[in-house]
Design a binder for these strands. Structure first.
Length: 370
DNA sequence: AAAACGTCCAACCGCCACTCC
DNA sequence: CGGAGTGGCGGTTGGACGTTT
């Protein structure tokens, strides 16, 4: 008996799937559903273990899988979520429609991890390597901020230059990538922002809030588009995470001292493009022309921009701590005492001029983002 | 041309959590 | 309560493929 069982086990096939096996598995699941994975192979006429069938279906044969290169948006989503969630690939995959956890995991290990390391960021902790809190560590942190800014700009530019249709490879029917079916998918419009518990959206909104704080008008934090709405969402508001990354299109920095037009679009600048602190006024004026003002103005703007990125870093840390609270309390429809204390007023507080506006402005998190 | 090396990703493995009896 | 069965997850690996020497 034992012998025959061992014998049966030895028959189970391993390794790459053949086209015939794929077809058998797909045909069976399309007709019957997968049911019990354990019993599926025998019913479908496959000499594989159930686990292998499950994996093949989930990671490759499922029709709703997007294949091909990861977009810059997806890259940044993964990086941000990894910073928040660690290597919980299945949780991260929830925020990347049509991507499998396995694919995201592979992409992380082969591309993103290396990229972060190259930038001087520890891919595990998402903190600068050798971070002593100042000096070199601060420089690396600075670089990280610029890299994030660069990614956002690239994503925006890519989106602008993209046609209204994109080609995705889905549902490849064999192991040969060349045989993948090509389909046209309409680009989905940026999702509206319901007050749902969406960590990523909150992260991005806080990012955009903090980055616009130097604009000529005071930063205001609207209620239903930000993390506070998310944090205070009722159970009814909790929806399955369907977020696709949506970068703010409107991030720009205007400095009254120079020009109110969009002279600078956030993300198009990085340290290598900014004038060095040693640059002379004459050189600045010469290179910038008369449009942007004199050298002092330009240098002032550059330094303001630099400090903007540093300030942003501090805000991000506060937000990170906050999101951890959400993860701990939010999914259970609970609010931590800290959240109730610090955020309730922010969300429920009125607009400027109303009775609790002042109270709202005094909350630590409002201060942090304004 | 071919060997060495590097990259990528599908698939496997082991572990853990959950359910059922 | 505890053991067996099952599903799901994350870490790791092996081999195909591309690039460099």
């Amino acid at each position: 008996m034992v012998k025959s069982m061992l014998g049966a086990k030895a028959v189970l096939k391993k390794g790459p799937w053949t086209r015939e096996e794929d077809e058998k598995l797909m045909a069976y699941i399309q007709q019957h559903g997968h049911g019990s994975w354990c019993s599926l192979p025998a019913k479908a006429g496959l000499e594989r273990c159930g686990k292998s069938c499950r994996l093949r279906w989930i990671n490759y044969l499922r029709p709703d899988i997007k294949r091909g290169n990861f977009s810059l948006q997806e890259d940044q989503t993964i990086i941000q979520l990894h910073a928040l969630l660690g290597s919980r690939w299945s949780a991260i995959a929830l925020h990347l429609p049509k991507r499998t956890d396995n694919e995201i995991k592979n992409h992380w290990h082969t591309h993103l991890k290396k990229r972060l390391t190259k930038m001087g960021i520890d891919p595990t902790t998402h903190k600068p390597i050798n971070d002593a809190g100042h000096g070199h560590g601060a420089n690396l942190n600075h670089m990280a901020q610029w890299e994030t800014a660069r990614l956002q700009a690239e994503a925006r530019l890519a989106r602008r230059s993209k046609p209204r249709f994109q080609i995705n490879q889905i549902g490849s029917f064999s192991s040969q990538p060349s045989t993948a079916r090509l389909v046209f998918n309409k680009i989905t419009p940026p999702p509206s922002l319901p007050p749902c518990l969406d960590v990523l959206t909150a992260w991005q909104n806080s990012w955009s809030s903090s980055m616009t704080s130097k604009s000529s008008t005071p930063t205001t934090i609207t209620t239903d588009e930000n993390m506070y709405a998310m944090m205070l969402a009722t159970d009814d508001d909790l929806k399955p995470p369907t977020s696709t990354l949506c970068f703010p299109d409107t991030i720009s920095l205007n400095y009254n001292s120079i020009d109110n037009s969009n002279m600078t679009t956030f993300g198009l600048i990085n340290d290598s493009l900014l004038p060095s602190p040693n640059c002379t006024n004459a050189a600045l004026e010469n290179s910038a022309g008369s449009l942007l003002g004199d050298g002092d103005d330009i240098m002032e703007a550059v330094e303001a921009f630099r400090s903007e990125v540093y300030n942003c870093n501090n805000s991000m840390q506060g937000l990170h701590n906050n999101i951890e609270d959400v993860l701990m309390y939010g999914f259970n429809n609970e609010k931590s005492p800290q959240q109730q204390n610090q955020l309730g007023v922010v969300f429920n507080g009125g607009e400027e001029g109303s009775t609790n506006f002042e109270e709202k402005c005094n909350t630590p998190f409002y201060k942090a983002f304004s």
